[in-house]
Amino acid sequence: MITLQTFFEEARAGRLTGIRCQRCAELAIPPKEFCPSCHQRAWELVPLAGHGTISSFTVIRVPPRGRAPEAPYAVAVVRLAEGVSLLGRIVDIPVDELRIGLPVKFRPLVNEDQTVVGFGPA
């Protein structure tokens, strides 16, 4: 099984990992112990290429503490080509060019020991 730690270690190296239920083919973002669809515990790891399109986005203008220098910044839910969604920070795309359906590509945003899911231009 893949833990959060390994998911983000892999993501840091540019590799996204999903999990697919070998019983019902449900595809999910880890971590999950049981398949929420069929309740089996038969996951296999599936590499995700990181290509997707924006299914929704927002521009955060009033950020939490410590993030003022980054604002305004965009966060999006991205539908990956493999058929699973992943939330991340949008980078290197002007906020006025964002739209639902815009193709984007995964990139890790690395800040010291933290890795954040990011999406940049496709």
């Binding site: 927002t58 939490p64 920070r89 933290q114 954040v116």
Partner: peptide
Amino acid sequence: ATFEQPAGLTFPGVFALIARALMA
């Protein structure tokens, strides 16, 4: 705390994502 907070998502941001999807 794993994906959403590190991306800088706020509570207005959560509902903004829902709003935009619903509008579309």
